[in-house]
Nucleic acid binder design. Sequence first.
RNA 1: GGGAGUGUAAUGUAGUGGUAAGCAUCCAAGCUUUGGAAGUUUGUUAUCGAAGGUUCAAAUCCUUCCACUCCUACCA
Length: 491
Amino acid sequence: MVNKKNTPITGITVSKNEDFSAWYTELVKKAELADIRYNVKGFVVYMPWATITIKKMYRKYEDLLDKNGHMPLVMPSVIPESNFNLEADHVKGFAPEVFWVSEAGSEGEKLAERLALRPTSETALYKMYSYWIRSYNDLPFKRYQSCQVWRYEGKMTRPFFRGREFHWIEAHNCFATEEEAINQVKEDMEMTYTMLQDEFCIPIIFFERPQWDKFSGAVSTYAADALMGSGKVLQLPSTHLLGQNFAIPFNVKYVDKDGEEKYCFQTCYGPAISRIYGAMIAYLGDDKGLILPFDLAPLQIVIIPILIKNKEEIVLNKCKKLFEDLKEKYLVKFDDSEDSPGSKFYKWELKGVPLRIEIGPRDIEKNQVVIIKRHDGKKLFIKENELEKNIDKIANNYTRELKEKELLDFEEQIEICYEKDSAKKAIENGKIVCCGFCSIDMKAYPCAEKIEKELGAFVRGKKVTDEKHEFSTCIGCGEPATCAVYIAKSY
RNA sequence: GGGAGUGUAAUGUAGUGGUAAGCAUCCAAGCUUUGGAAGUUUGUUAUCGAAGGUUCAAAUCCUUCCACUCCUACCA
């Protein structure tokens, strides 16, 4: 079969390297991940192909939270204004992006009290926590919910990355001591590494955010930045030490062993699954389309028959038998549609199916099948009698291979800088800058503002673990440095 | 929040005041095909983003709104 000149292009037409934005838009549309024709800004339809993977991601995350002692619950999606207003910094941070429900019914009757569509659930949950938590026997108290939240975003929305409605998990925990709360933050960070790096193949690094960049109402914020290559980072899950900032206004107290009433120490953790999905498909995908970790693919194996006139039956039978053998263990499809083989190859590569099995008359003569791996395009010829064993091996190795291929060495991405000029150059060269800073407290904010403006990049914070680099002076003001910070461009 | 652009069928487009709109893809039916995007025949689908306005006459000109795309700012 010969490719004709007027062949329509149903695949992706732009290169990811040359025009990332256009590439992503085409990927979302052509792989049928989201439909943006719903016509409400920032609200998109999640199509089955994305929804299946997102549900699998939720399942993995929820299993891990369960294992670490969290219990699931489901909160109402509206929050009374009086509740919402209880913690001053929190209100200040979130009020500009709240959607309000203010009337109801065909006459447009005003509600006695406005209801916020939750932008996050602290102020919904903690009202209930004050009922539920009575004594030290109730602690630690660990809950999570998987839900949608709404934020009235400014101009730029993009499917999965940033919507006015997004899908996440939020975990909200209460402890008797600050130390336990700090340990929870550490556990949250470990969970994040397990999920994002090991399961979803996205390289990340955790930073303690500067005080001016923390979650509204928190004592401190620890956020994972995904390393998207060429020095740019993307904020992914963050975990927050809330101290007693919410416990006091919401009256989240317990009676301790000594009979005294005490306020809890709280933490919250918010992995936004929809954004993680966006980051994953953006990071792993290539010019042919999606690439997915094996466990997360809606379809893991597709079998494509190569039909030659008068030899159809033997090929079809062989494919059917293989399909029957594989379907118990894997998500497998036998694509016997009328399209030509080539068009099927393109289609399933676009969809990111990890393994493609081709069977044609020539293979049957040689007692073999052809297996092609999506993530590296490698073609394997497997003898029929070794098929089962080999498929298991290939499937088991797929995600690990993908992770190794995509893992970035953080140290290779950074450049140590001692003054502004070299830092500026490093940022321009697509590096993450590591430098000395006066501090990450509010008093360093003017310093950060100046530097951020000059470099066109942001102070992401202090690295959470094993900082190796030391600096004597702050890159902004020249005063003695108290810490090393990382500066990077962000998406 | 600031800037630039776009809106005609499911999709991509032609159509710059005068016949309710042409083409291709998709989709459906048939025949011939099939080792990287098949060919062919027939058929279905649009009151031109929405609402006003100008005009004898509007997809086409004007106003407002909505949505989308890109850059910038912010967040998860």
